[in-house]
């Protein structure tokens, strides 16, 4: 069969669902409501209200990413040192939540964290003052970590588990103690996985709006929420597109920055 023919469905997909929508967004972003050319929609990112939303998005996404790394990395090290048949069980359990719709999971989290929710019920049993965590940035970060952690765990674990035991034996043989083995062998060889994980968590955290909507009670405006409202409430598709493009450029810039550190190592590749 003709190989080009086999590629056709993918070409249609890429064109129809990636390139054309992107061009459409770019077109909207660069025009006014009357159709004239403008950079105002993209430049609007610099206005105080949008800048504040971008900054908050950045802060929460970074916090979420850091927490995910701190949770995933030691876990991967622990799994590495465990027996082989246990490794697949751990992987399975960690992926299990992904079988459930993520909005459902966030709604469940909302009930869990709400002021009269399960968490505070349990706390009151122990006469501990209720936590007012719902509708705060902390709740949003909690939700993001809950949702995106598997995307950190998989690449990080993958890179750490694939490090050849002989490399560690070689390092020990050359005089490295446990501390040296970690810093000179395991850590540098795990970096490609960490970089992939960071990209896979940071990008969706940066563009999130459903999580912040549900767990932030609609009071906390991330850039994702602002864009969503431009499209669905204000119906200003041009401004919404402009802010989207600005956000995309911002993410692209951070990815490139990350990718540059990545080139230091020949091993492994960025997922994106």
């Amino acid at each position: 069969m003709n190989r080009k023919l086999l590629a056709a469905p993918y070409l249609v997909w890429v064109a129809g669902f990636i390139i054309i929508p992107l061009l459409f967004i770019l077109g909207k972003a660069l025009t006014t409501a009357d159709g004239g050319f403008t950079l105002q929609n993209i430049a609007a990112i610099a206005s105080p209200i949008h800048r504040k939303a971008l900054l908050l998005s950045l802060q929460l996404a970074l916090l979420c990413t850091v927490i995910c790394v701190l949770l995933a990395y030691p876990l991967a090290l622990i799994v590495r040192s465990s027996k082989l048949n246990q490794q697949s069980i751990v992987m399975f359990i960690l992926i299990l939540p992904m079988w459930m719709n993520f909005i459902l999971r966030i709604l469940a989290l909302q009930m869990l964290l709400s002021n009269n929710g399960i968490l505070n019920m349990i706390l009151s049993r122990f006469s501990i003052a209720p936590l007012e965590i719902i509708n705060t940035p902390a709740a949003i970060v909690f939700g993001m970590v809950y949702d995106f952690l598997p995307y950190m765990i998989l690449p990080v674990m993958n890179s750490i588990l694939s490090i050849d035991n002989n490399l560690i034996a070689a390092a020990r043989d050359l005089g490295a103690n446990g501390f040296h083995v970690f810093w000179k062998v395991i850590f540098p060889l795990s970096l490609p996985g960490v970089a992939s994980g960071i990209t896979m968590v940071f990008v969706p955290a940066m563009t999130a709006f459903v999580i912040s909507d549900i767990l932030g009670g609609g009071k906390i405006q991330l850039l994702g929420n602002v864009i969503e409202q431009e499209f669905s409430v204000s119906m200003d598709w041009n401004l919404g597109s402009g802010l989207s493009v600005a956000l995309m450029l911002f993410i692209l810039a951070t990815s490139l920055l990350l990718g540059r550190g990545q080139n230091q190592s020949d091993r492994g590749r960025l997922l994106w």
């Binding site: 050849d164 034996a169 070689a170 390092a171 043989d173 000179k184 062998v185 540098p188 060889l189 020949d266």
Partner: peptide
């Protein structure tokens, strides 16, 4: 030791 698989550090 010189290992069978060489085990040079790839990074």
């Amino acid at each position: 030791t010189v290992f069978q698989s060489y085990s040079l550090f790839p990074h």
